[in-house]
Every structure is written in C-alpha cells, then in structure tokens.
Simulated scan of single mutants.
Amino acid sequence: MNDIDAWVWWLIGAAALGIPLVVTAMPEFGMLAVGAGAAAIAAGLGTGVVVQVLVFAVVSTALIAVVRPIAARHRSQRPQLVSGVDALKGKQAVVLERVDGSGGRIKLAGEVWSARSLDTGRAFDVGQEVDVVEIEGATAIVM
C-alpha cells in the first residue's frame, strides 16, 4: 500500500466518485471527482497531504458553488424549440366551417381541426382568419 504514490490514490478516488455520478446522475459527484483529479495533480507535483486535501476541498467547493446555480437556472428555463400543440398556440388559422362557442372547423398548419370560440357569444364565418389561443385535446380554442 505504501508503494503506491498519493496521486494514484487521488485518481482512484476520482474514479470512485465517477461511479455514483453515472448511477445517480447527480452532478455533485462529478464536481467532487474533478476536485480529486486536481488533488492528484497537486500530489504529482510533490505537494504535501495538507495541500492536496486543501486543493480537493477548494476545487470541489468552488465547482459546486459556481456550477450548481448555473445548472439550476438552465434546467428551469423552457426549451426554446417548441413542438407539438405548444407550437400551434399563437398561430393563425382559416375558418372552414362556422366557428362559435359550440364548435366548428378550421385549417391550422395544413390540417383540419375542430375548433370553438374562446368567447362563447362570438362566431367566426367561413374564410375569416382566427388566432389559436389554446389546444384542448383535438380542439383548437380560437379568437
């Protein structure tokens, strides 16, 4: 055991921290693994155990303090590329059959959709352009 250099132990520690990173997908383990890698570099340069532990602690803490808030901010942002029914909200459509509070038909994104008016007292005649406000199941809510 004493024949193995300290930098090898730090690399083993980094690999050991990489395993739960892959299994649990918790990025904190990766940041700790990077800290262990930095400590391995410090050990390879011939520094003492105290300096190696300090390098591990400082690098790991700095990564967690800086990277976690950035990752959390990116995780909470909505994707910029919308697809499915979310992509249809706000689009314009053409009325194919009179649309009122009880129903009708529109042509939306090249397809025929059932539709109903957002304002139940308002009706749209054939050929009028309407805006899609919401999609409820297979029905477009228009105004």
Results as ranks from 00 to 15, higher is better:
1 M>G: 14
1 M>H: 06
3 D>M: 12
3 D>R: 08
6 A>F: 11
6 A>Q: 10
7 W>F: 15
8 V>D: 09
9 W>M: 13
11 L>S: 08
12 I>L: 15
12 I>T: 00
13 G>S: 10
15 A>H: 14
16 A>F: 02
16 A>I: 13
17 L>F: 08
18 G>D: 10
21 L>C: 04
23 V>G: 11
23 V>Q: 07
26 M>H: 10
30 G>D: 13
31 M>T: 08
32 L>D: 05
32 L>Q: 03
34 V>N: 00
34 V>F: 06
36 A>N: 05
36 A>M: 08
38 A>D: 09
39 A>P: 09
41 I>C: 08
41 I>Q: 15
44 G>Y: 07
45 L>M: 00
48 G>K: 14
50 V>H: 02
51 V>D: 05
53 V>T: 03
53 V>D: 00
54 L>T: 04
55 V>H: 15
56 F>R: 02
56 F>M: 01
61 T>Q: 01
62 A>Y: 09
64 I>D: 14
65 A>E: 00
65 A>D: 00
66 V>R: 07
67 V>Y: 04
67 V>G: 05
67 V>Q: 09
68 R>W: 13
70 I>M: 06
70 I>E: 11
72 A>G: 09
72 A>W: 05
73 R>C: 00
73 R>W: 00
74 H>R: 08
75 R>M: 11
76 S>E: 09
77 Q>G: 04
77 Q>A: 07
77 Q>T: 00
78 R>W: 02
78 R>E: 01
81 L>Q: 14
84 G>D: 12
84 G>E: 05
84 G>W: 08
85 V>H: 07
86 D>W: 01
86 D>G: 00
87 A>R: 01
89 K>Q: 14
89 K>S: 04
90 G>Q: 02
90 G>W: 03
90 G>V: 01
91 K>H: 15
92 Q>T: 10
92 Q>L: 12
93 A>M: 07
94 V>I: 07
95 V>E: 04
95 V>F: 01
96 L>K: 14
96 L>V: 15
99 V>Q: 04
101 G>V: 03
103 G>A: 14
105 R>T: 13
107 K>G: 12
108 L>P: 15
110 G>L: 09
110 G>A: 09
112 V>R: 06
112 V>I: 12
114 S>I: 02
114 S>N: 15
116 R>E: 06
119 D>Q: 02
120 T>S: 01
120 T>E: 09
121 G>Q: 10
122 R>T: 14
122 R>V: 08
124 F>D: 03
125 D>Q: 06
129 E>L: 10
130 V>G: 03
131 D>T: 03
134 E>I: 00
134 E>P: 03
136 E>W: 06
136 E>N: 06
136 E>V: 14
136 E>Y: 03
136 E>S: 01
138 A>G: 14
138 A>Y: 12
139 T>V: 03
140 A>L: 10
141 I>Q: 02
142 V>G: 05
